[in-house]
Amino acid sequence: MLHRREAEPAQPRPARQGPPFWLAVPALAFFGLFALLPLGGVAVLSFMEWDGLGTPRWAGAEIWLDTLADPATRAALWRTVVFVVVSFLFQAPVALLLGVFTAGRQRYRAAFAVLYFLPLLFSSAAIGIVFRSLLDPNFGLSRAFSPGTLSTNWLGDPDLALYAVIFVVGWAFVPFHALLYQAGVRQIPASLYEAATLDGAGRWQQFRYVTLPQLRYTIVTSSTLMLVGSLTYFDLVFVLTGGGPGDATRILPLDMYLTGFRSYQMGPASVIAVLLVAIGLALSLFLSRVSGSGRMQSQQAGAA
């Protein structure tokens, strides 16, 4: 492209030059007005007092100090950490194993893969409603078996609700990540497995020394999407529990919504939003750092 421009300096006919800037203007206008501007707006609003109806009023750093000092915010932050970490520990291994499993060409695995895909047909709202009904202690799954076996109030018990939600979120998102891993495994050259077989490597050794190191980019991509995704995840938790019972499942995105749109305190809600953006960015950066060094290690492991 560069040498072409040099070969034809300052051609007056527009058709001979590169495409004009206005082609990008519509996309930039949408992006700027409804994505970039709100991102800046949320930072500004986090210093303002606003009930969602009137005119926002400047309030300064007080809102930040109050919101950060609020035990409810800290509890929500800690709950979010638990939610993100446990979700990851549940989803990542299951998705990886299912991806490797469905990458096999056996007929029954292809049939299983079609069934694994089914949760992806449903919206988060739909999944939330199904599981609310299924986990109902009186009329749901509990009644399918002899009395008492499963009649736990999964979503109503403050000690269990967060983990029940994590399971349902996993049910909804594992299929997507399994698809990523399946595609990743299928790109691994068959010759690597043949060589490993000749070296006498068993199934576990092949998985450990061929499949895992070869999947490193997929692992990084999937893990980043999983961690950052569950940090900001809202829909399913909202429909399942609305943050309850009590505050048991009130993770940060829910805390933000409820503070802003139920308690009409848009200032503190914006503070939480800025926290979400900051934690999300820090997490992404951290992951790309860690995966940078992890990549070298797994390459060495693969070569050893």
Partner: peptide
């Protein structure tokens, strides 16, 4: 823009 979480912008989007 890939790094902007949609959820975090709902309040300004609502305002707008």
């Amino acid at each position: 823009g890939l790094a902007i979480p949609v959820q975090a912008t709902i309040i300004p989007v609502y305002y707008l």
